[in-house]
């Protein structure tokens, strides 16, 4: 699978107070950086975790990380990568013209959960590396009736920087 060198994966631990998402996203907006995916989960009453993916060249990435680090809402910044961390996206699709064979194939090939909704309509639930999600979308592009994707969640294992206490 090809790796885009400018693709960035960041995990922020932030204060769980109103307006934090806007404060974070405005840092990107004013620099004209498009956030590809953003997911949020509550860690505890006081903090939440935000996973962000976006495209940015290396020379500009360093500054964005520092700007995020100094924001009073941000408690911690971790930098993730497809190679050394767990990067996952949930993907749900309804496919047409499918039979039990296709369903079996998807279950085995993509480790997805499948449910036949009718004779030929198949519900597919997938949790996978976003590259695999893209592969699935491409392979079944002519059969996908509708789909939703969650955006990327990143769980860093070792490759991270911790700059704030």
């Amino acid at each position: 699978m090809a790796i885009d060198e400018n693709k960035r994966f960041i995990v922020l631990r932030v204060l769980n107070i109103p307006g934090v998402m806007e404060r974070i996203s405005s840092i990107f907006a004013r620099r004209g950086i498009n956030i590809d995916t953003i997911t949020v989960g509550v860690i505890n009453g006081k903090s939440s975790q935000i996973s962000l993916t976006f495209d940015l060249p290396e020379d500009k990435f360093e500054n964005i990380v520092k700007v995020l680090e100094k924001n009073p809402c941000v408690l911690e910044v971790k930098i993730g990568s497809l190679e050394s961390d767990v990067v996952r996206e949930a993907f749900v699709a309804v496919l047409r013209d499918c039979d039990a064979n296709v369903s079996d194939y998807i279950r085995i090939r993509y480790r997805a959960r499948t449910t036949l909704l009718s004779e030929s309509r198949l519900l597919v639930e997938l949790l996978a590396d976003p590259r695999m999600v893209n592969e699935f979308k491409e392979e079944f592009s002519d059969r996908i009736e509708s789909f939703s994707r969650s955006g990327v969640m990143i769980h860093t294992l070792n490759h991270y920087r911790k700059l704030k206490a």
């Binding site: 360093e62 500054n63 520092k66 700007v67 680090e69 100094k70 700059l163």
Partner: peptide, 8 residues
């Protein structure tokens, strides 16, 4: 004192 100024 502002880390983000270094190299900006």
């Amino acid at each position: 004192i502002d880390r983000s100024e270094i190299g900006k």
